[in-house]
């Protein structure tokens, strides 16, 4: 069943982008741009593999999320407390993530670029649906993280739109001064948004290492943190939009693997597809979609 397999592989490819894009929605909604998501995915993939290697996959996922959150904490201290340029801080986070994982990989595994093989979470079959023949590739032997990522879409949407926390988060991203006058702790909300994005990106990195590849490989994130930012913009700063955008990117990657097997086009051009698609998507939609009004602007008390 070729179509089913293609869809299943699109979904597998979409999950890391989706998870990071969901995180990006939280941080952007709180008004902080996070270019460092790529770096947070990198530390997630390394620490996930490290944790899983010593204490099993569940511990790996948790420590990956903690590592992502730690990097996010640095970003939050830089951008919220010290109000430095958010893009510059994000770039520094990426360099720090790259350098520190290489350093630790050498120190712990004695190899700069890969970890030993690690096992992921047990694969699951979805009951009832798994009996239906055309759906088999989509519902059999899939990673629980895929289910988790899909569940997180409506949950994130609910949190952002239907809870007090979400309302405060959005108000801080739209107009921090107004939020502050209403007694909302602007700094706390921004910290929450940034930290959440780090947790999501860490989980996404752990998915790459544990569930997708079975080991940590240097550069395995391949710019997916940046693609996730584009998916978030394409999805109009909404979790559901991010889902569709991630699926589109996942589909393009899954399709590109099939084309490589065909061997008609040089594979270097196939490798460009996700990045070219990101450019095209941004070119097409940017003027139509609008982000939070105060995104990227540091908030300072006592400043008009």
């Amino acid at each position: 069943m070729l179509v089913g397999e293609l869809l299943a592989s699109s979904l597998r490819m979409a999950v890391p982008i989706l998870l990071t894009a969901l995180g990006a929605v939280f941080t952007e909604r709180s008004g902080v741009v996070n270019i460092g998501l790529e770096g947070m995915m990198i530390v997630g993939s390394f620490w996930g593999a490290l944790g899983a290697y010593y204490y099993g996959p569940y511990f790996g996922l948790i420590i990956a999320m903690a590592a992502g959150m730690f990097m996010a904490l640095i970003h939050a201290i830089n951008t919220v407390t010290f109000r430095v340029d958010q893009v510059v801080s994000g770039v520094a986070i990426n360099i720090l993530a790259y350098g520190s994982t290489r350093f630790l990989s050498l120190a712990i595994f004695n190899m700069a670029t890969t970890s030993p093989h690690v096992s992921g979470l047990p694969k699951i079959n979805i009951p009832v649906l798994s009996g239906i023949e055309p759906l088999k590739p989509l519902v059999n032997d899939i990673s629980p993280v895929i289910i988790l990522a899909l569940l997180l879409v409506p949950i994130s949407s609910f949190v952002i739109h239907r809870t007090v926390f979400g309302l405060r988060l959005r108000s801080v991203g739209e107009n921090p001064l107004a939020a502050d006058t209403l007694g909302i702790n602007v700094f706390k909300m921004k910290y929450a948004g940034v930290l959440l994005s780090g947790i999501f990106a860490g989980l996404s990195g752990a998915y790459l290492a544990l569930e997708h590849t079975g080991m940590y490989v240097e550069g395995m994130t391949q710019g997916q943190g940046f693609i996730a930012l584009a998916a978030m913009i394409f999805g109009n700063w909404e979790p559901k939009g991010a889902l569709w955008a991630s699926l589109l990117f996942g589909f393009s990657e899954a399709l590109s693997f099939r084309v490589v097997e065909g061997g008609v086009v040089p594979y270097q051009f196939i490798k460009m597809i996700p990045y070219v698609l990101t450019l095209l998507v941004l070119t097409g939609v940017v003027k139509k979609s609008t982000g939070p009004a105060a995104s990227g602007v540091p908030y300072e008390r006592g400043l008009k």
């Binding site: 640095i74 830089n78 010290f82 430095v84 340029d85 510059v88 801080s89 770039v91 520094a92 986070i93 360099i95 720090l96 790259y98 350098g99 520190s100 290489r102 350093f103 050498l106 120190a107 700069a112």
Partner: peptide, 18 residues
Amino acid sequence: PRETISILQALMIMSIVV
């Protein structure tokens, strides 16, 4: 490991902007 220097560079960027 020479990667110590990458860490040093990233820290330099952050501390200079802060």
